[in-house]
Amino acid sequence: MSMDLKMDKDGDSVTVTVTGDIDMSSSTKVRDALGPLFQNNNKVIVVDLSGVSYIDSSGIATLVEGLQWSHNSKNKFRLAALTPGVKDVFEIARLLSVFEVFDTKEQALVE
């Protein structure tokens, strides 16, 4: 399954909506999209994963990189709407508690 990215900017927040599989062939696209967001004045960066049914270690690595960028830049980096398959991979990696995870992108943007 191919992957698509959509960005919605609202004030000082930005939501990146990913649809499709995040694997070795597509994770670079996610990385390239996220990187510049940490250089701008985005207070909150939300990755909406509701349309992602599959993620592999390269996708997880990309999100870990985003988390590290957020620590360096003071932007908030949040994940929203993890599907059961994606949540399971985070759990096996024991990374669920490391990220700020929200049930919906709306919650991620408000809180």
């Binding site: 270690s57 690595a61 990309t62 988390l67």
Partner: peptide
């Protein structure tokens, strides 16, 4: 080591774990 938060190196962990 999973305690060491860094990108990459999880694939082998997944295989061994599952």
């Amino acid at each position: 080591c999973l305690e060491d938060l860094k990108p990459g190196g999880l694939g082998t962990h997944f295989m061994n774990e599952i």
